[in-house]
Design a protein around this nucleic acid. Structure first.
Length: 113
DNA sequence: AAACTGACTAATA
DNA sequence: CTATTAGCCAGTT
């Protein structure tokens, strides 16, 4: 075999694996997850993957936000509000406008500095 | 089986 | 600050 013994069946599984590794009280951006998942600069794929996520998933999708530190408004969905509430419940402070202090909550594998 | 839609980022103007 | 352009995959119809 020698082919690429990749995990999972698609890229989705890979994204979920990374999101699941996000520690509580911390948030990661789509671009960050995409990079860790090995998708490269293709952050949109992460968004699409979460879109296909079932409701019974154990993945903390609410810990994923966009690069602006803003909670994705999604399309006409109130789920964005739910996400905000979940984050606040974990100790993540969210501004009234929906902005999060990435400097404070950005999930850094190695934050030197 | 083909086409459409959808949770994004980054650079440029 | 906003607007525009280019790139990707999977689920649903």
């Amino acid at each position: 075999m020698a082919a690429s013994p990749v995990f999972g069946k698609g890229r989705n599984e890979r994204v979920f694996a990374v999101v699941r590794r996000i520690p509580k009280g911390r948030v990661a951006t789509y671009g960050q997850v995409a990079r860790l998942a090995g998708l490269g600069p293709h952050a949109q794929q992460v968004g699409y993957a979460l879109h296909a996520l079932p409701d019974n998933t154990t993945v903390p999708w609410h810990r994923v936000v966009n690069a602006k530190g803003l909670v994705s408004p999604r399309s006409g969905g109130d789920s964005a509000i739910e996400q905000r509430i979940r984050l606040a419940s974990e100790g993540v402070l969210v501004s009234r406008a929906g902005t999060i202090d990435l400097d404070e909550h950005r999930w850094a594998v190695d934050a030197p500095r």
